[in-house]
Design a protein around this nucleic acid. Sequence first.
DNA 1: CGGAATTCATAAGCTAGCTTACTTTATTCC
DNA 2: GGAATAAAGTAAGCTAGCTTATGAATTCCG
Lengths: 162, 162
Amino acid sequence: MTALKPAFPAPGHDHDRCTAEGIEHAERICADRSQNLTPIRRQVLRALLSSHRPLGAYEVIDELARVMPRPAPITVYRALDFLMQNGLVHRIESRNAFLACGREHDDASAVAFLICECCGSVGEIPATAVAQSLSDAARQTGFTPKLSVVEITGVCGHCQST
Amino acid sequence: MTALKPAFPAPGHDHDRCTAEGIEHAERICADRSQNLTPIRRQVLRALLSSHRPLGAYEVIDELARVMPRPAPITVYRALDFLMQNGLVHRIESRNAFLACGREHDDASAVAFLICECCGSVGEIPATAVAQSLSDAARQTGFTPKLSVVEITGVCGHCQST
DNA sequence: CGGAATTCATAAGCTAGCTTACTTTATTCC
DNA sequence: GGAATAAAGTAAGCTAGCTTATGAATTCCG
Ligand SMILES: [Zn+2]
Ligand SMILES: [Zn+2]
Ligand SMILES: [Zn+2]
Ligand SMILES: [Zn+2]
C-alpha cells in the first residue's frame, strides 16, 4: 500500500489532481506490466476518477457519451475487465458498481470499503486487523475465507459535520 | 442471538427439521409482534428455507410456482419486505439474494455472512469482534459505520474435505 | 508478405431485479 | 350494514447488468 491518502477527500479538495494522479498511476502500472492502456481504457478510468463515487456500468457509458459517441455496453465492460485485472478498479459488490483505485495493494492484502450513504463517496482502508479477526471467527466454523467483501455503509466525516 | 447452531449444516443433516424450526420460529416471532404470517409469506419463507443458499427473487418465484400458480414478482417482493422487516430474512447484498434466518439478533448486533463458493451455502456468524476492529479502523478516518455488509467468500468446512 | 494476436465496433438479445398503478378480496370494528 | 385497513391479484413496464456473435482494423513478428 502506498502513501496514506485520506480515505475521504475533503469536499473542496483539488480533484483535478486526484484525476491526474490516477491516470499517472495507471500509466505507470501498465508500463511496468507492459499492458496497453488504450484510449478507451483510459477514458473509462477517467470516468471513474471523475468522482469518488462508484459508478455503475451504465453510468460510465453516460459519462463517456459526453465526450465521444456513446459506447456500447460491451465496450466498457471490456475496459472494466482490463482495469480490474490490473488492480486499477475495484468492483463494489453491494452496488454492482465500479470504483477507481489509486493505490497499490499486494494481491493478498484485504481492504474494506466505507460507503457514505450521504454523499456516496467510498473510502478504502486497509483491513488487515479486520481480516484477521474475521478469519479467526470464520475458521472456528471450518470456513476458509478467500476473497472478502467488506463493504460498510455509514456516514463519512465530512457529511457528519454538516 | 440464540443457541449456537453450526454455521454450516452438514451435507447429510436432517433438513426437514431445519425447515420446520424455521417456520416455527417465524410463527413465534410474528405472534409476539402480532404480525400476520399469511400463507404467501409463509410459502416464501418456506422457499428460502428449502436450502441454505440465498435465493434471488426470481428463484423464489420459480420455487413457489411448483406448488401454486406462478406468483407475480410484486407478490414475492411484498412478502420479502415483510419477512425482512421482521428479521426473518436477510438480504445478501453481494448477490442480490435473500436468505432465511432462523436466529434472533438484537437490531444492533453485527453479523457476517460466510458464502461458500463451492456449495453456495451461506453461514451466519456473530461479528462482534469484527465489527469492533472495523469500527476502530473506520473511525480513524472519521467514518461512522452504520449498517455493515460483511460478506466473505470462501470454502466451507464440508466442501473442503471433499 | 502473410498469419496471429489484440483491440474495438456493431448489432442484438437476455435476464433479473424491481416498480407503478389499479382492482379485488378479506377482516375488523364501529 | 358500512367505512376503513390490510393483504393480494392483475397487468404492464422499465432499467441495468451483462452476454453472444461476428467482423473490421491494427499491430506484431517471422
Ligand atoms: Zn478527488
Ligand atoms: Zn459523505
Ligand atoms: Zn438444513
Ligand atoms: Zn460448501
